[in-house]
Simulated scan of single mutants.
Amino acid sequence: MYEPGHMLDEIDEDRICPDKGKDIKVLFLTNSALGNAEARMAIRQTWGHYASRIDIGHAFVLGRGTNETLNKAIDEENYLYGDLIRGNFIDSYKNITLKVISLLEWAARHCSRAAYIFKTDDDVFINVPKLLEFLSTHSAKRTMYGRLAQNFKPIRNKLAKYYVTTDEYAEDVYPTFILGPAYLFTGDILHELYEHSLNRPYLWLEDIVVTGVVPESLGIKREDSYCFVNVVTTYNPCVLHDHVSFHSIKPIQQYDIWNTIQNKTTKC
């Protein structure tokens, strides 16, 4: 079902990941929907600004669209910023696993020497200084980091958002996996994740596939890290300063959190 390859017109690969990522500490790859231009701009103007550093790379990952007006807007956006990775699949919610496989393929082809890959979504805020601090105390190999989900069962209710048929996933319980909005993994497992994600029956729940089924079969460690947060429960500056990621963030909130974290006078 997966068609390899990407539209490489106008993407600035040498800026995003020079020399295959030889000096890249973290490559951020952010899943984004075609129509989410506002969310992408908010990230570029806040935490995505760290991609100007020589040791950090960042790009957005999208699929293809059928709306010509939107396609033209995407072309123009990529002409300006050169940071849109576009795979050979229709950009839709049910194709999110294809989007992550596309992400893995691009990284494996163009940034294979990066020390870490951080997969995230365009409604996530990343506290980059806190992440770099986190990495300074972790030196494991073949490891994925994020918020673990354990003993989750497939939902068999046909009316539910996350309904999964027994043909899609036959077991009664999912393997331990990492919640999909934000997870980090060491670069030494990049090729394995890509190749083995291709070689299993398709399941549209990408986090279960890429952080659960595949790494479990490969003996890759998943580590529960409480500094990865699903939602912002408070705008307490000390909470914001002390965590790596926050999910369910609207574009305007990206700026609010950014301004709070940039305030160096906060004492906790």
Rank of each mutant, 00 (worst) to 15 (best):
L184I: 06
L184R: 07
F185C: 06
T186R: 01
T186F: 03
T186C: 00
G187Q: 01
G187H: 02
D188Q: 01
I189G: 01
L190M: 02
L190G: 00
H191W: 00
H191L: 05
E192Q: 03
E192Y: 00
E192H: 02
E192K: 01
L193P: 09
L193F: 08
L193H: 04
H196V: 06
S197N: 14
N199A: 15
N199K: 15
R200T: 14
P201L: 13
P201K: 12
P201N: 13
Y202S: 11
Y202K: 11
Y202M: 11
Y202W: 13
Y202N: 12
L203H: 14
L203Q: 11
W204F: 12
L205F: 11
L205Q: 07
L205P: 00
E206A: 12
E206N: 15
V209I: 15
V209G: 09
V209A: 07
V210F: 12
V210D: 13
G212C: 12
G212K: 05
P215W: 05
P215C: 13
P215V: 12
E216H: 14
E216V: 08
E216Q: 15
G219S: 01
I220F: 04
K221A: 14
K221N: 10
R222C: 11
R222N: 10
E223T: 14
D224A: 14
Y226H: 07
Y226R: 07
Y226V: 05
C227D: 14
C227I: 14
C227N: 08
C227E: 15
F228T: 08
V229P: 06
N230M: 05
N230Q: 09
N230P: 03
V231K: 15
V231A: 10
V231T: 14
V232A: 05
T233Q: 08
T233I: 12
T234F: 06
T234S: 15
Y235G: 04
Y235T: 07
Y235K: 13
C238I: 06
V239F: 04
L240H: 03
L240Y: 02
H241Q: 14
H241L: 14
H241R: 10
D242W: 02
H243C: 04
H243V: 02
V244L: 00
V244G: 03
V244Y: 00
S245V: 03
S245W: 01
